[in-house]
Amino acid sequence: MLYVKVKTEDGEELVLEVEGMTEDEIREELAKAGFKIEEIEVYEVEP
């Protein structure tokens, strides 16, 4: 499983499960949803 931890400019932290997306695609999708991203951390969790 691939997850991203996202910190927004307003200090909110989100953890999202993503599969088959690049970091650029993740940033693009979050921007479309109205999030202003300060930091993204991508990590993989073994089942």
Rank of each mutant, 00 (worst) to 15 (best):
E19G: 12
V6A: 04
F35C: 05
M1W: 13
V42G: 04
L14V: 07
E28V: 09
M21K: 12
Y3N: 04
E9S: 13
D10G: 08
K7N: 04
I26M: 03
K36V: 07
E44T: 10
V4K: 00
L2K: 15
V18C: 11
E23T: 10
E23L: 15
K32N: 07
T8K: 07
A33L: 15
V6P: 00
A31Q: 13
E29F: 15
T22M: 03
E23D: 05
V18L: 06
L16K: 01
D24T: 10
E17A: 13
I37K: 05
M21S: 06
L16S: 01
E13G: 03
E9A: 13
E41K: 07
V42H: 05
I26W: 09
E46V: 13
V4I: 08
R27A: 03
P47C: 09
A33W: 14
D24E: 12
L2Y: 15
V4G: 00
V45G: 09
E39L: 14
G34T: 01
E9Y: 10
L2T: 09
L14G: 01
L16H: 02
G11N: 03
D10I: 05
E46P: 13
G20D: 06
K32Y: 05
R27M: 07
E38Q: 13
Y43P: 02
K36A: 07
I40C: 10
V4N: 00
E38G: 10
V42D: 02
K5H: 08
E19K: 11
L2P: 02
E9I: 14
D24L: 08
G20Q: 05
V45C: 06
V45L: 08
A31M: 11
M21Q: 06
K32M: 06
G11I: 01
G20K: 06
I26P: 00
E46G: 11
I40L: 08
E25G: 03
E13M: 12
E38F: 13
Y43Q: 04
V18N: 01
E17P: 06
Y3H: 09
E44I: 11
E17M: 15
A33D: 03
K5R: 07
E46Y: 15
E19W: 15
E39K: 11
M21T: 09
V6L: 09
M21G: 07
D10M: 07
K36G: 04
P47G: 10
I26R: 00
E44W: 15
T8I: 05
M1V: 14
E25D: 06
V4T: 00
D24N: 12
L30E: 00
G11T: 01
I40V: 06
F35L: 07
G20F: 11
A33I: 11
L2R: 14
L16R: 02
D24M: 10
E17N: 08
T22R: 03
E17C: 12
L14H: 06
E29H: 14
V18R: 07
F35G: 01
E39A: 13
L16V: 06
D10Q: 11
T8F: 14
G34Y: 02
Y3Q: 05
L2D: 02
V45E: 08
E17L: 14
F35K: 02
V45K: 11
E13A: 04
E41I: 14
T22C: 04
A31T: 10
M1C: 06
R27V: 07
I37V: 11
I40N: 02
D10E: 10
E29P: 00
T22E: 04
E9T: 12
E9P: 13
Y43M: 11
E29A: 14
L16Y: 11
G20I: 06
G11Q: 02
G20Y: 10
M21W: 06
R27W: 08
G34P: 03
L30C: 06
V42K: 05
E17H: 13
E28L: 09
E39V: 13
M1K: 15
V6W: 05
K36F: 07
G20M: 07
Y43R: 04
V18S: 02
E46T: 09
K5C: 06
V15R: 06
I37M: 08
E38W: 14
E13S: 10
